[in-house]
């Protein structure tokens, strides 16, 4: 509650400012999207929700984006948990490993995408090494990891970028509570695998849930990763929105706003889940 030395008026003022600063851009932004979709603001003809929902291209794009975000986040989560469990200690080598793995954390998406393109494409560095070793004769024999239907290149970039963040969360959770509780379980007679299965993992997963959702929506909305690395068919959702927006056809224009609105709905849903899972201490 508000402590006595903070004036109630000042407190209320700050709170209203918070609501305004955070809420207004969101409301205005979504408002314009709605306007664009129904053709109030913008040149777009009103488009029917039905037509967009019946458009197979929209669904394929949504599925691809969900696949990228889902697979990328799951792999990054698995890596992060392994690091917390295997390299979460205080020894020199473990601390070194954790510092090294944190390296990609601040690297902007664009930079990461460029690096992965140069490394993983069919004529990238790995393919060249394979050619030198006579494992392949032409670039086409190297597996398609970039501009590929399974978006492996994008997923690899997501893992590279997001594993450090999730590892950071996992390690700190583990050192805060996890280890003590695991030790307690062991003292009470649980086998190592029992303790891992029933105490450590559930605890970590529960604590990491909000961060995992944050990573998931961040990847889902990213424009630059699929722009550089993802397949041309289907297009990732942000790319589909851009393509429809820039079409010379006014109907497509309205569709773009409507698809953007659907993507927004997905994000708001994620925010609700995030809020429900977030530990609200105090």
């Amino acid at each position: 509650m508000i402590p006595p030395h903070v004036s109630a008026r000042q407190h209320l003022l700050t709170l209203s400012a918070a609501a305004l600063l955070l809420g207004v851009p969101i409301v205005v932004g979504i408002g314009y999207l709605v306007g664009g979709a129904i053709g109030v603001s913008g040149d777009a003809d009103g488009v029917s929700l039905g037509r967009v929902l019946r458009d197979g291209a929209v669904w394929r794009s949504a599925l691809l984006s969900l696949w990228i975000a889902g697979a990328g986040t799951s792999l990054a989560l698995t890596g992060a948990l392994s690091i917390a469990l295997l390299l979460g200690g205080a020894s020199k080598i473990e601390r070194f490993a954790r510092t090294v793995v944190a390296l990609p954390l601040p690297v902007p998406n664009v930079a990461a995408a460029v690096a992965v393109l140069l490394l993983l494409s069919q004529s990238g560095w790995l393919s060249r090494v394979a050619a030198q070793l006579h494992l392949i004769a032409t670039p086409g024999e190297f597996p398609a990891l970039v501009l590929d239907p399974w978006a492996i290149g994008v997923i690899a970039t997501v893992v590279w970028k997001e594993l450090p963040f999730l590892a950071l969360v996992a390690v700190s959770l583990q050192s805060l509570r996890g280890r003590a509780l695991t030790d307690a379980a062991r003292t009470l007679g649980a086998s190592p695998s029992q303790a891992l299965r029933t105490i450590t993992l559930p605890l970590l997963l529960r604590g990491m849930a909000p961060s995992v959702i944050a990573v998931f929506v961040f990847v889902l909305g990213s424009l630059e990763l699929p722009l550089v690395l993802a397949p041309s068919s289907p297009l990732a959702l942000p790319l589909l929105i851009q393509e429809r927006r820039q079409s010379l056809d006014a109907t497509s224009h309205g569709e773009a706003y409507l698809i953007a609105l659907l993507a927004t709905g997905l994000a708001v849903f994620a925010a609700l889940v995030h809020e429900a899972l977030r530990r609200d201490e105090a």
Partner: peptide, 9 residues
């Protein structure tokens, strides 16, 4: 290339 399933951007 890629059996016509993918096209360069």
């Amino acid at each position: 290339w890629r059996k016509g399933t993918q096209y360069p951007a």
